[in-house]
Write a protein that binds this DNA or RNA. Structure first.
Length: 514
RNA sequence: GGGCCCGUAGUUCAGUGGUCAGAACGAGCCGCUCAUAACGGUUAUGUCGCAGGUUCAAAUCCUGCCGGGCCUACCA
């Protein structure tokens, strides 16, 4: 294994929800990076899992007539199932209810206590019984009747105080700003970085990191009335996985993580609280946190009341797995919000996959099958047009590598598809079907150049569409041992026997309206 | 209220001072026939949100306005 490690994580998903397209999207992005880095020779660790503590879970379990543990066992499984359905390749699936995680959280807690960054205080605020939540003063207003209510929900609130441990976040403002300054790539995209910066510059308040109002959580060491704040608990999963507190663990080599992929809603926890916790405990913060955007459904926000959430299994069933994977990362600049449109998905599926890429493979491979004895044709002298196309294909690896290091999936794919378009132009310009009669030697060379171009393109497609890419590489006679990027420059060998070509990307035809 | 971002062809977007403002998809026309009726060539479409200003020169910088989005702490 390579000494270059790459540790990428999804957020751990909160089990009070069934997996929808948002979860699928985050994990997909991580999966593509993990697969790419493995092919590129890194020692990769890809982690996903579920966050299983908190009041909502405790309540939902009670409603379902289950113990919290039974309840989370059940819901956690639906996220585990998503891994298979979407063909993700995590190295592990962590759950915050695992004993090793309790140990890790408590060890971190004790470190923070020892460092003087956690103290016992009082948590006070405007509590709404109906909403079961606290509001800060600014989120409430006093009505005509003299009663104070939460502005957002309209529920009456009362002043409540409870003992709570606090993390001295206020003391970290300057150190965090210095950290962001020194690590300009810590937060992506830039728009989010700006938001975090202005948030932190506004000054930080101490953070309540324990609760006494419910019990489904990690107990605070030495004070069993308290359980840990779910975010302190949840974030810690990233180091639990690496063996914390045992820094001699074989997995500790992966820390600090190269990338925490998150949705834009949880960026603050990852970019402010998490590095502060880690630095306070004397641990290195992650290298980078990237926040992607949200999907809307045909222009509308997805919500429970509209009942318009998009579920990955339904998409996969209708359109196939790889087209969905491709669409999600190609359609929208990663980091922006995106609108999910059926029409757009079908357009990508038919235009980019079936017509451009699939048909390119098919038209080339079928001539090879018919005219070259089902073998990789011999390669003759290369013309300028040949080397021009081959050079563009060769250059793709460096481009895709750079784009993916910026999480610019859409740009990586655009670059690959430009070469596919070049290849289609090249087919028309060279017209191998005409060369069959006039110059079969030249025809063979043209076909070799095309097959070789498809090989390079397809190696790079692997992380995005693993199954489809594998089928194409099979049809090109590329052995599995030659599919990592170490073999990127190992050109096709003339004379290699080939199987019968078969279409890999079917066109999508709308079923007759019911 | 404060802060950040956006408004460019039918659609999605690229373009941060300087050739006639670009791409993709969609549309029209032409070509090809190897291929999943796929592929290639070509044409057309824009008061670059509005109004001022700076400059030899602005989609690109500044100001104001209109429209839209996001952030503004313990509820994941």
């Amino acid at each position: 294994m390579s000494s270059r490690t790459y540790y990428v994580t999804t957020p751990i998903y909160y089990v009070n929800d069934v997996p929808h397209i948002g979860h699928a999207y985050t994990s997909l992005a991580c999966d593509v990076l993990a697969r790419f880095k493995r092919l590129d020779g890194y020692d990769v660790h890809f982690l996903t899992g579920t966050d299983e503590h908190g009041q909502k879970v405790e309540k939902a379990a009670a409603t379902a007539g289950l113990s919290p543990q039974q309840f989370t066992d059940k819901v956690s499984q639906s996220f585990r199932d998503l891994v298979g359905k979407m063909n993700y390749s995590p190295d592990n699936f962590i759950r915050t209810t695992e004993p090793r995680h309790y140990k890790s959280c408590q060890a971190l807690w004790e470190k923070l206590i020892a460092a003087g960054d956690i103290y016992l205080g009082k948590y006070a605020g405007w509590y709404s019984v109906r909403d079961e939540t606290y509001f800060v003063e600014g989120e409430t207003e006093v009505g005509q009747d003299g009663k104070r209510r939460a502005t957002s929900t309209g529920a009456e609130v009362e002043w409540v105080e409870e003992p709570s441990y606090f993390f001295k976040l206020s003391a970290w403002t300057e150190r965090l700003l210095a950290f962001y300054e020194k690590n300009p790539r810590f937060i992506g995209p830039d728009s989010r970085r700006n938001e975090i910066l202005s948030f932190v510059k506004g000054g930080l308040q101490d953070l309540s990191v324990s609760r006494t109002s419910f019990s489904w959580g990690v107990p605070v060491p030495g004070d069993s009335k308290h359980i840990m704040y779910v975010w302190l608990d949840a974030l810690t999963n990233y180091i639990t996985e690496c063996g914390y507190p045992d820094t001699d663990s074989p997995l500790w080599k992966y820390w600090p993580a190269d990338l925490h992929m998150v949705g834009k809603d949880i960026i603050r926890f990852h970019c402010v609280f998490w590095p502060a916790f880690l630095m306070a405990a004397g641990l290195a913060p992650p290298q980078r946190v990237f926040a992607h955007g949200w999907w809307t459904n045909e222009g509308q926000k997805m919500s429970k009341s509209l009942n318009n959430a998009i579920y990955p299994d339904e998409l996969v069933k209708t359109y196939g797995l790889d087209p969905v994977r491709y669409f999600l990362l190609r359609e929208v600049p990663f980091g922006n919000d995106g609108d999910f449109q059926k029409r757009a998905l079908i357009g990508r599926m038919n235009g980019d996959l079936a017509n451009a890429y699939g048909n390119l493979c098919q038209r080339v491979l079928s001539i090879v099958a018919k005219s070259c004895g089902e073998k990789i044709p011999p390669r003759g002298t290369l013309t300028e047009a040949d080397t021009a196309l081959l050079d563009r294909a060769k250059g793709l690896l460096a481009i895709v590598r750079a784009e993916l290091d910026d999480q610019a999936f859409h740009r990586a794919l655009t670059a690959i598809w430009e070469v596919i378009a070049d290849a289609n132009r090249y087919v028309d310009a060279q017209a191998p079907w005409a060369l069959a009669k006039t110059d079969p030697v030249r025809r063979d060379t043209v076909l070799w150049v095309l097959a070789e171009t498809i090989r390079r393109v397809t190696l790079l497609v692997q992380p995005f569409m693993p199954e489809s890419a594998a089928k194409i590489l099979d049809q090109l006679g590329v052995p599995e041992s030659a599919r990592a990027f170490a073999s990127f420059d190992a050109e096709l060998v003339s004379g290699t026997g080939l199987p019968k070509p078969q279409g890999v990307f079917p066109r999508y035809v709308e079923p007759k309206a019911a």
